[in-house]
């Protein structure tokens, strides 16, 4: 879809309005509930373990550039860094996309500041490594093996290199928490990490960790939208069953005969 169709305009605006509305309601002090998410509770445990063992923590915000996923990763990492800073544990963060470096450095150093430990922050701890996928992975693998981190947190966009990082951390016995919207990498994190944040738990993470009204509101808004989508899809399913495919028309983009046109069954020959 290069430009919005009328249904697209309506649906997108409704979705956006629901989210923005709940955010504003939450900022005005509406009380909101969020259920327990086990993987996210584990973050504190992992930081605690690192403190006990007296070894460092590795944070990675993945392979994304300046995008929504990576900014969310950065927000999660900042929360972890401030917990680590409170206990005086060292945090290291290799960066993939150079343009993110200033913002990451800023975020981590302000996390230290907030914990009153600005002295413990060294700008070498947030360092650019490489923007080449496997060079980054090799560098991180080397760092993990040499520094023998007690805990690693992998959040953000990941591709194949996820397993290289997670297996190396597993070898040095680090406790690992990982979360990514790159669904294809989740099985590998499940195999190598102690806790995995799946699906949109990733976007719930900051709300869960900080309990900030804005984020909580957004999360509740997302939940409502998801319920709306599910109900609409179910309704469409039932209507199709009753031979009234309303929803089909609603989501219609442009007539797309490609599949049937080229399907040999209907005879293109």
């Amino acid at each position: 879809m290069n430009h919005a169709t009328w249904p697209a305009r309506v649906i997108l605006i409704v979705i956006s309005a629901v989210i923005v509305w709940t955010v504003i309601a939450a900022q005005r002090g509406k009380k909101l509930f969020i259920r327990r998410i086990p993987g996210l509770t584990a973050i504190d445990e992992a930081v605690g373990r690192a403190v006990e063992m007296g070894r460092g923590i590795l944070l990675s915000s993945g392979l994304g550039g300046i995008d929504v996923v990576t900014l969310q990763a950065l927000a999660i990492c900042t929360n972890i860094a401030s917990a680590a800073a409170r206990y005086g544990t060292k945090v290291q963060m290799p960066i993939y996309e150079a343009a993110l470096l200033p913002i990451a450095e800023d975020a981590i150093s302000s996390a230290y500041n907030k914990a009153g430990r600005s002295d413990a922050f060294s700008s070498d701890d947030v360092r650019y490594l490489s923007n080449q996928q496997f060079a980054y992975a090799a560098g991180v693998a080397g760092m993990i093996q040499r520094e023998q981190y007690a805990a690693t947190f992998l959040f953000g966009t990941f591709f194949a290199e996820s397993l290289i990082m997670a297996e190396n951390a597993n070898m040095v016995g680090a406790i690992q928490v990982a979360g990514t919207p790159s669904t294809t990498q989740i099985p590998f994190f499940i195999a190598s990490c102690d806790y995995v944040i799946i699906g949109d738990e990733y976007y719930a993470a900051t709300a869960y960790l900080t309990r900030q009204p804005t984020l909580l509101g957004s999360m509740i808004g997302q939940d409502r939208v998801k319920i709306g989508i599910l109900v609409t899809v179910m309704l469409g399913f039932l209507l199709t069953m009753a031979k009234m495919p309303l929803v089909k028309n609603l989501f219609e983009d442009k007539d797309m005969p490609a599949a049937s046109y080229y399907s040999p069954a209907k005879g293109g020959k």
Binding site: L12, V233, G236, V247, F251
Partner: peptide, 24 residues
Amino acid sequence: QTFQAFAADYFPKFRTAASKAVMD
């Protein structure tokens, strides 16, 4: 750009899911 990406990515999926036939 997220609006366009969302519409392009998810609308076809919504449609597929919503038009799964059971009868006939």
